[in-house]
């Protein structure tokens, strides 16, 4: 699985190097149609300090880790 992430990383670098990222693809949601998505209530990181605490609480008590937007860390496990 790690190799897929490495491949993805290389692909992203390649896309950028070749300038594909600036291709004039017609966006189907225009910039002026994104006011709902830009509303603060839609922000997953509306309360970053609270998200960091939630991640830490779960990290110490569950075996699963990774693919969260914030990192927990440390122990506090007993």
């Amino acid at each position: 699985m790690i190799k897929y992430i490495v491949r993805g990383t290389l692909l992203l670098a390649l896309i950028s190097l070749t300038g594909c990222a600036s291709l004039s693809i017609e966006p189907w949601v225009k910039p002026y149609e994104r006011q709902n998505l830009a509303d603060p209530i839609m922000s997953a990181s509306r309360h970053p300090i609270a998200n960091m605490h939630v991640a830490h609480v779960l990290d110490a008590r569950e075996a699963a880790r990774g693919a969260e937007s914030t990192e927990g860390g440390g122990c506090g496990c007993n």
Binding site: M1, V6, T9, L12, V29, R34, N36, G66, A67
Partner: peptide, 30 residues
């Protein structure tokens, strides 16, 4: 090592897909 894609799908909907691989080595006991 992690990678993710976030995509605007409609004017009201966004979706994302995230992968993360974690490798530990050493003393992992409590």
């Amino acid at each position: 090592l992690r990678a993710g894609i976030n995509q605007i799908l409609t004017r009201n909907l966004t979706a994302s897909l995230t992968f993360e691989a974690v490798a530990d080595e050493g003393y992992l006991n409590n």
